[in-house]
Design a protein around this nucleic acid. Structure first.
Lengths: 170, 170
DNA sequence: GGTCAATATATGAAATTTCATGTTTATGGC
DNA sequence: GCCATAAACATGAAATTTCATATATTGACC
């Protein structure tokens, strides 16, 4: 999955170089680094990462409609439609139209899908516990709280932050 | 770029649901949420996100070899080779073989490429400053430190963490 | 100097992703 | 009820990404 981070790892986090200390880079690199091992595990089970995301989301909220599932799983709608079709073919999920609103398509885990999802969620929990254990004590320990705050802060900002929409230095 | 996060935003960060409180999800969601606006800006300039990453890395370290550039930019090598070919076609970079080791290909910014890169880095700095300003005071303020720690912690772990390699609950 | 393993990059085919747009169904006036 | 507009999904073609593998060097060793 992508060039392993570590290409710059640390030495020049301070210097004049831009990238290694840039927030958006740190977020992307941290996400990749943290996910690499578990994503390898997921693929080793014959599940692709986006499929795992869908499984996890459905384990939380079975029968979700496609659009909301897309938002929840961080997958673009058009792409998700195709992924779901494949997961359907594999017998992990089924689709049923919503009787209230027939535009909607609700996605449900099959028995096999639920078993797979639950197994992987277990693994994910165990893996996460390992990661967190490794961070105990340091600044990184409160990282989940910090990330949650960041996400909420940004989510709210989707709707106008007066006088701060532009950041280009023309 | 992907389903906007916000599909779950906050309400159930506490409940019994797994995803909204899972570290790997928080990292991915935070990365996306934080990057969305700036990535839109980049694309509006006619630059794709992976290209922007390459430009930024080269602005830091011009003349880097492909493999290292891949690690630095978080892009898989094979993919990077193709991206660089396109950037070359656009006149943003040029490639020169390394005379010491003729397997290597070093990538350099052209004048146009450097101008573009520097402009975008300026924009990125400004945008980052805005983001950080929004977080002042809260837990999220020290997020860069936390992420850097996390990355280093994980990077080191690539080489054996005895007795902690397995996390599946068979 | 020759050989074998490793490193650096390129490449081609298959698969996935993207983007724009199509279809169907719901909603809010009028 | 009709119409215009929006929402929810699906779809097709183009572009990109992935994966396995090819090619060219370099290094190590005997």
């Amino acid at each position: 999955m992508d060039g392993q981070p570590g290409g710059s790892t640390n030495e020049d986090r301070q210097g004049e170089s831009f990238v290694p200390n840039y927030l958006l880079y740190l977020l992307a690199a941290a996400s990749e680094a943290a996910s690499a091992q578990f994503h390898a595990h997921v693929r080793a089970q014959g599940v692709r990462v986006p499929e795992w995301r869908v499984l996890a989301c459905l384990a939380d909220r079975d029968g979700e409609m496609v659009t909301r599932l897309a938002g929840y799983a961080l997958i673009e709608q058009s792409r998700l439609t195709k992924i779901i079709a494949q997961m359907d073919a594999k017998g992990w999920v089924t689709r049923r139209g919503d009787s209230q609103d027939r535009r909607r398509v609700r996605v449900f885990l099959t028995e096999a899908g639920r078993a797979l999802a639950e197994r992987l969620v277990q693994d994910a929990r165990a893996h996460e516990a390992q990661l967190l254990a490794k961070l105990e004590g340091g600044d990184a320990a409160r990282i989940k709280q910090a990330l949650a705050t960041l996400i909420d802060e940004l989510g709210a900002a989707q709707h106008r932050t007066p006088g701060a929409e532009d950041f280009s230095n023309e």
